[in-house]
Simulated assay, not measured.
Amino acid sequence: MAAMNGTRVSVVVFATSFLLGLLFTHWIADSLTLWKPPATDERLWMAARYYFVIAQTSIGFLYFFAFVAIGGGFTILWCLREGEAGNLMFDGGSIFLYASALAVYMHTVLPNLNANFVPISEFAKEIPESLKRSTLELASSHLVCSVALTGVLALQAGRWWSENNGDPDD
């Protein structure tokens, strides 16, 4: 049984780390908008061009990313099904954070990419207010997803630690 738990936790950690890696690749654009004030028109244009490229991603890649995300969520639910106190606490928190990250991504990031990042005229000096807002919202949503998925990793590490350093009488 312990080997099966280790495999499940490994799948959760793999899926979460993979999704975090995808979000971290956006750092090149997100850092221009969130972490380097002020968010000048030049930086926002650079970020918007990056997001335009991302919006053109092949559907095959999107299906693969969705497969990994669904697999990770399913595995957390599978771990939660055992009903042990540790599972309820760590995996319950993990599924909440994981589902929150997926919800933000599906309901904020994807619609924003599809609706606002169409071919962009680079000749305009000022970035349109709607594109500026969309770029900042996208970067903020990436940050929310990253923090939630980092919380999943922290909870899974806490679960591992509690299982391996539990009651000395065991």
Rank of each mutant, 00 (worst) to 15 (best):
A15Y: 01
S134W: 07
G72F: 05
M106D: 00
E82Q: 12
V68T: 05
G166I: 05
I70Y: 11
A124L: 08
D169L: 15
F96L: 15
W161S: 13
A3H: 03
F96P: 00
N87D: 15
T150H: 02
V9W: 01
R43C: 05
F90D: 07
E42I: 12
M1F: 08
A157S: 12
S134V: 08
N112P: 01
I59K: 11
E163Y: 08
W160K: 06
K125N: 06
E82D: 10
N116H: 15
F14N: 00
D170S: 09
L149Y: 10
V13G: 00
E82G: 03
W27C: 08
W27Q: 12
A39C: 04
V53F: 14
R159M: 11
M89Q: 06
A85W: 12
N116F: 15
T25W: 09
A15H: 04
P119T: 08
S162L: 11
L80H: 05
S130Y: 11
N87A: 15
R133H: 13
G83D: 09
F96K: 01
F67N: 03
K125G: 02
L77T: 09
A157H: 06
S141E: 01
F14W: 02
P168R: 12
S134Y: 07
G60V: 09
R8W: 07
F65I: 10
A103Q: 04
F96H: 00
E137T: 13
E163P: 02
W78I: 03
H107R: 10
G72W: 04
L34T: 04
G73L: 12
R159G: 07
V11R: 06
F74G: 11
D170G: 07
M1C: 02
A115F: 11
D170M: 12
G72Y: 03
G72S: 08
I70S: 05
A47M: 06
T25A: 14
L62P: 01
K132A: 11
A47G: 04
I70M: 09
L44T: 06
G151C: 04
G93P: 02
A101S: 08
V104H: 05
Y51T: 03
L143Y: 05
F74Y: 15
D169C: 07
T57E: 14
A101C: 02
